[in-house]
Every structure is written in structure tokens, then in C-alpha cells.
Design a protein around this nucleic acid. Structure first.
Lengths: 215, 215
DNA sequence: GGAAAAGTCAAACGACTGCTTGAAACGCTC
DNA sequence: GAGCGTTTCAAGCAGTCGTTTGACTTTTCC
């Protein structure tokens, strides 16, 4: 029975503290107390509170994004252009699966990533954009292939609405108004895809354009 | 030219500070500095930081909720049961209109209310539940009338997804990834309703129930 | 074995937090 | 103008924050 490396213990504790209290609300004192580590250890290993947050976020988001891209490739292998439902499933499922496969930590991670998508704290939002930008672009391209009649700008708008739902789903996990049944993630995924797909495929509201023009 | 009452100046400043920095991040010092008021004034007028937040939130949410109910009544007057699109429009439009009618302050209010729906801070979420609970129930009833075939539990789930989108829309207003065109709120409202309505009306995923059962 | 590197620790830094205090300044009626 | 509530104010309370320091112990490598 070996002790876990302090660096990892700090990440685990930070994950929970950030999830429960946000960036401002989580104190390094609380993190180090939970990690059973001296306060100075945070600065020794990570340099500052900001870089600690970035490291914590990266550890979670990067594997999820890889899984997203893998599922998107699968969708392309099954049909080209891929079915809309397959794209949406590849987009939303990894977040949900990640959470399901991690037991108690799943709910913590869910809240943490959900919060991170929302928090306007400069450090947080910049990190999220860095980590998510490329994957988002890949999915937008796929959506455009599956829905050639919907303007790209409209698709981007709708994609962001989907992100909004996922975010909310994650943020509220483990709380009273939670939408995600951690016990049956697959059901939630199907439910979500069934909700999103017709919305994505709805005809574009052309009346937004000046009269007479077409997209 | 009369000076605005200190109490109101505090509310205005708190609104902006909470919008930009959240409950934890906003300090009473910053609020009172912006309001050009002594720190003690906050406790004189509001008692504590928590009740200041509550007052700030109430001032915004209550008129919006009244407008929501008014539009819902209009929808019932036009058709009973009302058209699904009319219900959704009544649900999402007041938030958007509020923001449009207020110029610069609109973006601040949008971020503030959006944040408040997300922030897990106990005080914040409790206040939101208090202020929103009844209106949410009224709309759920209306949705059930318009969509008798969708189980109520599924409708609640979907309604929360809509809240998620509105929240995101509000939270990101005035930022680079904002979804709300403050200059043309009506277009955003139509766009949003067009996106949401088919999602709401989509057939329920019955495979979530044990085999053989029906709702 | 001993020097260099890596890691740990208690203590303290200055700045900031929400909140309280007691006195001064105000607008008001009598 | 005296008296009386209401409002404002500078100062300070006890506590927390992120971060730094310098001494101490442990590990690594020649």
C-alpha cells in the first residue's frame, strides 16, 4: 500500500474544492488541508492558484475531447456524410460516460467541468476555449455536411445551445435539480439526443435576413 | 438634477459587481466605491451581503416573471389549449425583452441573472428557486395541455433544458461568445423558439421504461 | 560517504474580507 | 434654536486570502 504522490493528491482535492465552491470560493488552505499537504506545496508543484486550476481542468477535458473525436470518426466510417443523430451522440456522450465510469468522483467532475464552462473568470474561460476550440470546429464541419441547407452561422448558434444544455446537465449533477441520472447514463444520452436532433434539423428562420435575400 | 437615493445606487453597483465577479468575487468595498457610498451603508440599508444579493435579484426577476405570466394568459386567450409555439415564446421572450429595453444595463442584468441561475452558492440558488418556482409550474401545466402525449416527467426535463439555454444565452451576453444580438432581440426570440419548439414536441423516448410498460 | 538536488514544513508577509462601532452631520418638527 | 430620529462617516475588529521565505529533512547520484 503506497501513498499517492502529493501532486496528484492536490489535483484530486482541487477538483472537489473547485467543483463545490468555484474558483474564487475555493481556498488553497482548504485544498491543501484535504490533500494533507502543506500550503507551500501548491506553489512548489504548480506555481500559483491559476495554473493549478488549469492543470486540474486539463486532466479532465483532454481525454474527453479525444473520445469525442474518436466517436466522430466512427460516425464518418458508418456513413459519409454521417447521420445527424450519430454526430450529436458523439458530441454529448463522452461527457456523460466519463461521469458514469468514475463513481463518486463522477459527480464532482461533472460539477467542476460544468462550472468551468460557465464561470466568466478570465482564467477559466480562456482555458476552456483553448481546450475546446478545435474539437468544436471539427463538429461544426460535420454538422454542416449533414445539414447542408442550414447556414453555418445558424449551425454554430445551435451548437452553442447544445453546449449550454450539456453544461447545465453537468453543473446540476448531484444536486436536487439535477438532470443526469448517474445510474443510467445511456438513457440520459438517448433522451438528450432525441431532444436535440429535431431542434438541430429544424428549418432555419429566414426572416432574420433582409427581405428578398436568400442564404 | 437630483442625486439618486443611496439605496438605489447600491443596488445598481451591486448588480454590476455581482454580474462581473459573482457572489464571492464581488466585494462590498468595490460595490460601495462604485456607488460612492460608505461601506457601512450596505449594512444600514440591507443588513448583510446576502440580503443585498437577494434584493438585487428580486428587483430584476419579479417584473420579468409577471410579464411571463401575462404572455401566457394571452396565449390561453388566443387558443385553449394554447399553441406550443406561443407557450415557448411567452417563456423565453420576457428575459430577452428586458435586456433589450435597458441599453448598457441590459447586458449587465443578463450576465447577472444568467450567473444566478448557475451559481451553486446556497444563497443564490435558494433565492432563484423561491422567485422562479411558481412560474415554472404554471408553464409546465400549459406544456402538458399542449403536449398530452409526452409524460409530465419528460416535459419537466425538457423545460429545464430550455432554462439551460436561456441561462447560457444570458450569461454570455456582452462577451465574445455571446448568443444574443442585443440590437435585434426579436430575431433572437424567433430563432430560439424555432429551435426549441420541435425539440419540445419530439416523441418521448419510451425505451427508458422497463420493457412492456407504457406511460 | 558526501555533495547536490528535490521535497517538506511552520511561520509570516501584506492585502483584503464582511461587519461593527461611536461619533458627527443631516433634515425635520415644535 | 432646541430636540429628535435618520443618515453618513472614518476607524477598527477579527479573520481569511494567495504567496514567500528560510530552515529542515529526504532522496539521488557520483
Amino acid at each position: 500500500m503506497w501513498a499517492v504522490h502529493p501532486r496528484q493528491r492536490i489535483l484530486d482535492a482541487a477538483e472537489r474544492q473547485f467543483a463545490d465552491n468555484g474558483f474564487h470560493g475555493a481556498s488553497l488552505r482548504a485544498v491543501t488541508r484535504e490533500a494533507e499537504v502543506n500550503v507551500a506545496a501548491v506553489h512548489y508543484y504548480f506555481g500559483s492558484k491559476e495554473t493549478l486550476l488549469r492543470s486540474t481542468l486539463e486532466r479532465i477535458v483532454q481525454p474527453t475531447n479525444l473520445e469525442r473525436l474518436r466517436l466522430l470518426d466512427e460516425a464518418f466510417a458508418a456513413a459519409d456524410p454521417p447521420r445527424l443523430e450519430a454526430i450529436m451522440d458523439a458530441f454529448v456522450r463522452p461527457d456523460l460516460e466519463l461521469i458514469a465510469g468514475l463513481g463518486d468522483r463522477g459527480a464532482i467532475i461533472a460539477r467542476f467541468t460544468g462550472r468551468s464552462y460557465t464561470e466568466p473568470e478570465e482564467v477559466v474561460s480562456r482555458t476552456v476555449t483553448d481546450l475546446f476550440g478545435e474539437v468544436g470546429g471539427r463538429f461544426l464541419d460535420a454538422l454542416q455536411l449533414a445539414l447542408p441547407d442550414v447556414p453555418r452561422e445558424e449551425l454554430l448558434w445551435r451548437q452553442r445551445c447544445v453546449v449550454a444544455i450539456i453544461t447545465y446537465l453537468l453543473t446540476t449533477t448531484g444536486t436536487s435539480r439535477g438532470l443526469l441520472d448517474v445510474g443510467d447514463v445511456d438513457a440520459t444520452a438517448r433522451r438528450l439526443v432525441a431532444f436535440i436532433t429535431p431542434a438541430m434539423a429544424s428549418p432555419a428562420v429566414t426572416s432574420m435576413l433582409p427581405a428578398g435575400e436568400t442564404a
